[in-house]
Simulated assay, not measured.
Amino acid sequence: MKLKLALLALLAGSSLVAQAQAPAAAPARAEVKAEAKEAMKAGEVATGEKPAPAKAAKSTKKRAEVKAEAKEAAKAGTIPAGEKPVTGEAKK
């Protein structure tokens, strides 16, 4: 009799604990659809066989600075072109 009473108390206690640990409410279907639509517009969702595009990094240099550096590198021979090997050393 004591065994049955102990098992019944254990069962009741475990069910109370299980109910107390219920997960939080899931988002509504409309919320999930809105989030998916925003992600599609932002290009964050992979479609078909192509992966999701990576976000482009912003440059800290002005266009004129980049063009001047490229011109110098081409003059110094540090930019490979076609099958021609690199002749100069890159800046470090």
Rank of each mutant, 00 (worst) to 15 (best):
A24I: 02
K33N: 10
E49S: 11
A28C: 01
R29N: 05
K84W: 02
S59Y: 01
P23N: 10
E44K: 15
K62R: 12
V86C: 14
I79N: 02
A52T: 01
A64Y: 02
M1I: 02
A20M: 08
G82T: 07
L16Q: 04
G43N: 07
A90M: 11
T78K: 13
A68G: 03
E38W: 01
A74T: 07
A20N: 07
L3C: 00
E65W: 04
R63F: 02
E38F: 01
S59G: 12
A22W: 01
A42T: 01
M1D: 08
K67I: 07
P53C: 05
S59H: 05
L3K: 10
G13V: 05
L7R: 14
A73Y: 01
A34P: 00
P51I: 04
M1G: 13
A34F: 03
K33W: 02
T47W: 07
A90Y: 07
E65R: 07
A68M: 03
K50Y: 00
K58R: 13
A30E: 15
K91M: 07
L7C: 06
P53N: 04
A52P: 00
G13F: 08
P85H: 12
K50N: 06
L7S: 09
A73P: 00
A68E: 12
K58S: 07
A20H: 08
Q21R: 11
